[in-house]
Amino acid sequence: MLVTVALIILGYTGFRFACALGYPPAGLSGGKQGQEVAVRRVRQQHRLVSRSWLEFTIGGKNRWLPVYFDPVLVTLTQVTAELSGRTVRIDGHRVYPSGRLRDSEPVGRLVDNPARPDPEAIGRTGVGRRLVLDAQSAVVGPFAGLLWVYVAGGGSPAFVAAALVAAATATWLSAVRGSDPS
């Protein structure tokens, strides 16, 4: 069972990595040439999930694109970005999409970046803060361990192993979806 979980995690991570690099292309601008557009960063807060989104207007429609967190986003105000295929460049810095382009506003509360960003905010976005944010979903681990012992048996060692695997998988899933520690 552990090998199956590990293969699923590695396969899905590879798929997300390939999508973030632009394979298969899912065209933001519909072509290879770059399109300059005004973007702003918004942070979505929905239940335990916090993600970064780029909001912009193309063809008279508002669009939202989830992106992996980058410290550059913390101080980002309304700027011009270059969109080309699935590539997003903001002031020469590449930002990686963490999901599909949306035509509808993401669920939850959207928080704008401040007009005057705090220069010390970048220092509060380290690995520790990100791990604390992602590890909130690890609460599911003991419940999955109890379910595993109930269905498959195995006693205490099986419970501990199943709880650890479930907690690690839940933490990984939060991170791979593009959490935002800011």
Rank of each mutant, 00 (worst) to 15 (best):
L83C: 06
S137L: 01
W172I: 06
Q35W: 00
F17P: 04
G85K: 07
L65Q: 08
P66M: 00
T171F: 03
F143P: 05
L83R: 06
G153Q: 02
R16I: 03
L131I: 15
P142R: 12
G60I: 09
R116V: 15
H46K: 07
A115D: 15
V42A: 10
V132K: 12
G85L: 09
G123I: 05
S104P: 00
V67G: 04
R51A: 04
E120N: 06
E120T: 14
W64T: 09
V74F: 02
R86C: 05
P117D: 11
Q33V: 07
Q35D: 00
L83K: 07
S52K: 04
E105Y: 08
R47V: 00
L2E: 05
A168V: 03
T57S: 14
V42D: 09
F56W: 11
A20Y: 04
G141S: 00
G154D: 05
L110T: 09
N113W: 00
L101F: 08
P114V: 12
G155Q: 08
C19F: 08
G108Q: 12
R177Y: 07
V3E: 09
T13Y: 06
R16F: 01
P71F: 10
V140L: 06
D70V: 05
P142N: 08
S98Y: 03
L83T: 07
G155A: 06
D180F: 02
I8Q: 03
V49C: 01
G14F: 01
S182A: 11
G123N: 14
V67S: 03
R129L: 06
G178E: 07
G126V: 09
P106S: 00
T13L: 03
G60C: 08
S50C: 02
L173S: 13
E36Y: 07
Y12R: 13
W53Y: 15
